[in-house]
Design a protein around this nucleic acid. Structure first.
Lengths: 150, 150
DNA sequence: TATTGTTATACTCTATAACTATA
DNA sequence: TATAGTTATAGAGTATAACAATA
């Protein structure tokens, strides 16, 4: 702690580096854990975004996830092909597609979430429960709630 | 906390989602903060990796950063073109390039690190100092020290 | 034979622009 | 005119394979 601005020239204290690698590793672990369910970590994210407040239009789901609507198209194509989601034109606004989880999708989400939660716990195993909860809480407040309910 | 396995079907508690978006945002903030110095957040990472224990071969630097050696080539091409690093064949093993920061590179790193640290502090501003330090410490232990000093 | 740096190539992820159908 | 979904396309960023020089 010098007063002259010694700025710890240490890669391993760099937040970008830490967050990038932490993300990479949990994504890797989760992808492995989800393998039996036929979806990857990204697809779980889409299912979670949809499960929040159905029914949703594609665009609403995309905003919730923080991805582009054009990206959402491809994700939903894949999930629909697997029978996990269904798309129907919105009766009130036929430009929109209402996206819903199928029964299979809901069941897959349930099981995949259990596996994903286990992967997270494995990932966080070296932390105390308090530190793990603090980490999650801090990240939540940093990311800020994209709680656009419309 | 139900005992039946209610697995919080909430995207915003999902670690991958949180880490991905946290990474995205700090990378964005840092890139802005580094703009005056002519480097981006990734290039700062490379400079930091090099500054650790010079002199280093390209491959050692790449391993330290956790990127492929072929990726390192392009990064160093850019940094060399900007006059921030220099490459010389290793006298003891002429297959290797020893990569070092130039004086300009060292000075750029110094200033960029100050700006980057400020960006991190801005990013973490909503956390208590304790929570911020806990976050960094937890992330460090999760990422694990790639302290291959050779 | 193995390794370092390099190049060519391909793959993934994502966004921008343009098209269509609806509003 | 504007919006939702779609498609085509292009741009990052990265890794794999193959090559030259060196060990």
């Amino acid at each position: 702690m010098s007063s002259t601005g010694e700025q710890h020239l240490d890669l391993r204290r760099n937040l970008i580096y830490l967050l990038k690698h932490a993300h990479f590793r949990i994504a890797e672990l989760t992808t492995e854990a989800l393998e039996p369910f036929g979806i990857d970590a990204r697809e779980l994210g889409v299912l979670l975004a949809l499960a929040g407040r159905e029914p949703k239009s594609q665009q609403q789901a995309a905003q919730h996830l923080g991805i582009d609507r054009t990206t959402m198209v491809a994700k939903l194509d894949g999930l629909e092909a697997k029978g996990l989601v269904s798309r129907h034109p919105d009766a009130n606004d036929r430009r929109r597609n209402v996206v819903e989880l199928t029964d299979t999708g809901r069941e897959t989400l349930r099981k995949a979430t259990i596996a994903s939660t286990q992967a997270e716990q494995d990932f966080l195993a070296s932390l105390t429960p308090q530190a793990a909860e603090s980490l999650r809480r801090s990240l939540r407040s940093l990311v800020a709630p994209p709680d656009t309910g419309d």
